[in-house]
Design a binder for these strands. Structure first.
Lengths: 240, 240
DNA sequence: CGTATAATTGAGGGATATCAAAACCGGTGG
DNA sequence: CCACCGGTTTTGATATCCCTCAATTATACG
């Protein structure tokens, strides 16, 4: 409530705002609804669970900064990260059973309720917002299917390159990258758990990508010097 | 329009109806909306694309009988079936780019528009229907994540057993099985494309499951003699 | 400086893919 | 009834990818 004004403090557009705008131009009322999502701001330290202590089933949280992931852990300890959340992504905490959302880095999240209520508005308000939202949801579904193909049909080498391009594109759409560089806070263990590989093999695969200069990894930043070549290695399908 | 009455001809409850009822008891108005989905009934022969010729982006079709799957095909011919549709499932044909929905067997589908409009009703009508629908959607999401874990972290043996249990449970929830037997129309090539394995390896894995009498495969029917043992082999997490 | 975490390297084995051929099976036509 | 046919299943042999185990080095952090 208090911070429609405060929200303006941040010079650059928020990543969620940027993503939505890339699908459909928003109106001022829409923008206000998005920017109002700064309530109940909380920081989750790396490795911890993002769900608030007494989280209801229908909570939706907006990632303001940092990375998180939805994790499924098997009884014998095997772990699969099924989805990565970047700044500007929304985390629906409803479908809990069996999976949890953990912070990969320190993560700041906010209550996304204002956005949710705007989307549920009965009157015709927020039409543009709703369109952009729909497209964004469709894209999210696509990304899940992309991940399925990655795990099912790509080699370790292709998988790794593919994931990098995926994350890069998402950063760009959120206005957080120009498409050639982005932050890279993931340990090789995290990458392994995303890609369904062993740590050791991830290490060797990343080395190969660096040796071939498809990626440069330095100081927590990842650089893609030649997107075309990386896309080839990644078995990347442009389209969506 | 014409067939609220005709719908009653079918003695048993439709599979979609059965699934919804398993989540929340429906009211007569809800049931009518579900049963009204018998318009534009069309049959797709095995191997063909399920999307109607000039399909708009927002078409939703209900599977009345037969199996279908959403497929992604890479340029080099590798194929991944990312989602299997059984009778009672709804196929959203909107997020087309890159993926198509193909019939694994001859498939009869109907236009699900009546259901869609009922769910969009402004007034308070169809409250129960909406609840059941939400739960069903949550389950569908879960199944996608299950599939991700299957591909990412399970061995070929576990994957296969796991898929069988998944399909069995879905049949049961749709009122199409008692949980011990179900139709099995899949060729080993299809199984391979679902599980991200080679045909040859699927063959050997199925042989092993049969040798150990975890499954019996005969005359297009699959029987699970001992669910508990199969669940163990499948690394199955009960919960959801 | 010392400790913990992460990255790297090497050796060896197991799981799964690939290639090629043979057996099986339901349908079709002579 | 038989021969044939395409598609499916099965089998064997071999190659490769990726995993596991174990140890070493680098990096971050107090």
């Amino acid at each position: 409530m208090l911070n429609i004004i405060n929200a303006g403090i941040d010079a650059r557009a928020g990543p969620l705002e940027h993503k939505l705008q890339s699908f459909a131009p928003l109106q001022t009322a829409d923008l206000e609804a998005v920017r109002a999502c700064h309530d109940d701001l909380r920081t989750t330290p790396a490795g911890m669970d993002v769900a608030p202590p007494g989280a209801g089933p229908d909570v939706v949280r907006l990632v303001v900064s940092g990375w998180a992931a939805r994790a499924r852990v098997l009884r014998d300890g095997r772990r699969q990260l099924v989805q990565i959340f970047l700044p500007g992504d929304l985390i629906g905490l409803r479908l809990l059973p069996g999976s949890s959302v953990i912070a990969l880095t320190p993560v700041r999240t906010a209550d996304a309720a204002p956005l949710a209520t705007a989307l549920k508005a009965r009157n015709g308000a927020h039409a543009r917002l709703r369109v952009a939202w729909e497209r964004l949801e469709a894209l999210r579904q696509q990304q899940l299917l992309d991940h399925l193909v990655r795990l099912g049909r790509l080699s370790a080498y292709e998988r790794t390159a593919n994931l990098i391009l995926d994350l890069m594109d998402r950063h760009r759409r959120a206005g957080l990258s120009d498409g050639t560089r982005m932050p890279w806070p993931l340990t090789q263990e995290m990458v392994a758990d995303v890609l369904g590989l062993s740590i050791v093999h991830v290490n060797r695969t990343l080395q190969q990508l660096r040796r071939e200069e498809l990626i440069v990894l330095r100081a927590g930043q990842l650089i893609v010097p030649d997107r075309v070549r990386l896309a080839q290695a990644a078995c990347w399908e442009p389209a969506h």
